Amino acid sequence: MSARRKTVTYFHLHLVSDSTGETINVLAKAAVAQFERVQPIEHSYALVRTPRQLEKVFAGIADAPGIVLFTLVNEDLRHALVRRCAELGMPCLSVLDGVLAVFEAYLGTKTTHRPGGQHQLDSGYFARIDALNYTMAHDDGQNVHELDQADVVLLGVSRTSKTPTCIYLANRGVKAANVPVVPGIPLPPIVENLRRPLVVGLLASPERLVQIRRNRLLSLSETEETDYVNPSMVRDETSAARRLYEKLGIPVIDVSRRSIEETAAAIFTLYQQRKANGG
């Protein structure tokens, strides 16, 4: 590969929100993912609801010119930000305007212009908090006697992204637990008898696992070769995990080339299908 092709383009990306910034961060990541060899330098401004707070945003974008994306519902703040960006010659876009316009046209009603309306403290919010608390208490094989209370239980060998996938699911209100599949150590008996939760097995190619595990050991300053990163042993480990999943009769997801979001989305689809079928 030539040096030219390896070049990464860096740019400043300003994300301005009158709420937590979660929505605009997700949208920005989705947009950036469509471009190769570009890397944003993100500047996030959350809970911007007063002119004084907006002044800090102005200072930030003046110091680091780039793209400005915002989700502000207050008209005065919106207009002030757009004017300032025009003066600085910076592109500025309200990422929800197009979506809201479609909703308004179809529903025949106007938006409420309520800051952070998507994060109101409704039953869904408390369900997500409850799910997150459950997930953190049942990570990596903890409290296995309570696994029947889960919505989803993930099984997987080391470094198949069990924990972050569970946390992602919890943020969608799904109580997710995970249990490690360890060579030579049988699963807790309760796992084979679970009926209520959806049980899913995670797999990755041996080559991918070795790469991830080596990087993990390097980050811990561990350089000694062990069975944990031995290609032959890892192949045996993944083969044994696959046989276990077949024995349990559970769905299997290969995470080798999937992001955590993609893995969680696939599991969530299986979960929704199971619920629709009365499971």
Rank of each mutant, 00 (worst) to 15 (best):
A265W: 04
E224T: 14
E237R: 05
V229R: 09
L248C: 04
A240W: 10
V234M: 09
G249E: 00
P231H: 02
S239G: 15
T263P: 09
M233R: 14
T226A: 11
V255S: 08
R242G: 15
A265S: 08
T238V: 10
I253H: 00
I250D: 00
K247Q: 11
M233Y: 13
Y245P: 07
V252M: 08
S259I: 05
P251S: 06
T226S: 13
G249R: 00
D236F: 09
R242K: 13
V234G: 09
S232A: 12
N230K: 01
T238D: 07
T226Q: 11
A264S: 03
M233H: 12
D227C: 09
Y245F: 10
E237A: 06
S232V: 15
E224F: 12
I253L: 01
N230Y: 03
I253W: 00
R235I: 11
A266K: 07
S259Q: 08
V229T: 15
D254E: 02
E246T: 07
T223F: 14
A266I: 02
E225H: 15
G249T: 01
I260D: 05
A240D: 15
R258F: 06
V234N: 09
Y245A: 06
Y245V: 03
R235L: 14
E224R: 14
L248F: 03
P251G: 06
Y228L: 03
A240I: 11
L244S: 05
P251N: 06
E237N: 07
E262P: 05
L244E: 07
E224G: 12
E224Q: 13
D254A: 02
E261G: 15
I250M: 00
S232Y: 12
S239M: 14
S259W: 06
L244M: 08
A241K: 03
V255K: 03
R243L: 12
V252K: 06
V234E: 09
I260T: 05
E262V: 01
I253G: 00
T223M: 11
E224D: 13
N230P: 02
R243P: 11
E262C: 04
T226R: 13
Y245Q: 08
T238E: 10
I260K: 04
I260C: 07
L248N: 05
Y245C: 06
L248Q: 04
A266H: 07
I253P: 00
S256T: 13
A241D: 04
P251M: 04
K247Y: 11
S256M: 06
G249Q: 02
E261P: 08
D236C: 09
E237W: 04
T263Y: 10
R242S: 12
A265R: 06
K247M: 10
E224H: 15
V234L: 09
T238M: 09
V255R: 04
V255L: 03
P231K: 01
S239A: 13
R235M: 12
S239Y: 15
A241Q: 04
A241R: 03
A241P: 05
E225L: 13
R235P: 12
